[in-house]
Nucleic acid binder design. Structure first.
Ligand SMILES: [Zn+2]
Ligand SMILES: [Zn+2]
Ligand SMILES: [Zn+2]
Ligand SMILES: [Zn+2]
Lengths: 155, 155
DNA sequence: GGCGTCACGATATAGTATCACGCGACGTGA
DNA sequence: TCACGTCGCGTGATACTATATCGTGACGCC
């Protein structure tokens, strides 16, 4: 399990997921997603724009933001608020496909910048309980944990 | 308990807390903190700047960002990442003073924008446990829960 | 063919945050 | 008393992030 999936394969799965939802993963959107998946840490919109310009000289901020909006909307990527950057969703292709908005948390390494997505039920439950206790109806939660990753901690 | 504290009193407590830490709550910093406490929802840096300009025509972005950095560093305010805005820490004056960096979470109402800080131990513990399980050393966590507040939910 | 929707190009602008330089106030020790 | 370092802040420029607006061509539908 947790076998490494090729980017090509991820893209194809994403395309299929979009079709199931009645949406289209156009070449542009596919390319932006590919650029995000190709990076091992979260990528900023303007970094994407720069890379995009190599292929599409006419690309401008709205070009990339529109693609990002689409990918976010369909759960193919997430935004890391602390970094103003975007990262591919790793919960796809592991059984339950792309939820539109599944509970997730990020572990962000201060030293190397590596950011991994986890989906911890205990955290999600504790958050839901805390919200309820405060008379609050939780819809979604941003959880971004900063610290030192295993690789950097043992080095 | 949880008696309402006047802003004046909060400011004086903040000043005392700074002194204890060997820092100075200068008039400028005090004024920025006052503006933040005066708002019932998180305030953006440029909104603060506009209000600051009434008193200090020369104020510029660095003026407010330097004050914000100081206030953040000393735990007097927090940043709400989802909103790019700042809010006073409500854990002060309730016994344990201003921790430099205490665990906290935000409940952000989608309808009215009201944002309240909570300090739920179960959430903090669940996050610490999840991080440990992943071999990650957590240092601090951003937790921002979006939904509908009690007031808006019952209306 | 007329029409609505959608994806995208293109230009401009808004909103958020930092850099770099300088200067005066203050404390400290020679 | 003076040289020196630190700190707080003024000031101008710049970088970085995100959105508004208008136009146009492709496509599906009737
Ligand atoms: Zn995900
Ligand atoms: Zn690391
Ligand atoms: Zn607080
Ligand atoms: Zn509300």
């Amino acid at each position: 399990m947790t076998a490494t999936i090729s980017r090509e394969q991820q893209l194809n799965e994403a395309e299929a997921a979009c079709l199931r939802r009645g949406a289209k993963l156009t070449p542009l959107r596919r390319q932006v997603l590919d650029l995000i998946l190709a990076s091992d840490s979260p990528v900023g919109a303007y970094a994407l724009l720069d890379r995009l310009k190599a292929d599409r000289p006419g690309a401008a901020p709205p070009t990339v933001y529109r693609a990002l909006d689409f990918l976010l909307e369909h759960g193919l990527i997430h935004k890391v608020e602390r970094l103003n950057a975007f990262i591919g969703c790793t919960e796809s292709g592991h059984g339950h496909g792309h939820d539109h908005d599944h509970p997730h948390q990020f572990l962000i390494c201060r030293r190397c910048g590596a950011t991994v997505e986890i989906a911890d039920h205990a955290v999600a439950d504790a958050i839901a309980a805390a919200a309820t206790r405060a008379g609050f109806t939780a819809v979604e939660a941003t959880v971004e944990i900063e610290g030192i990753c295993a690789r950097c901690g043992t080095a």
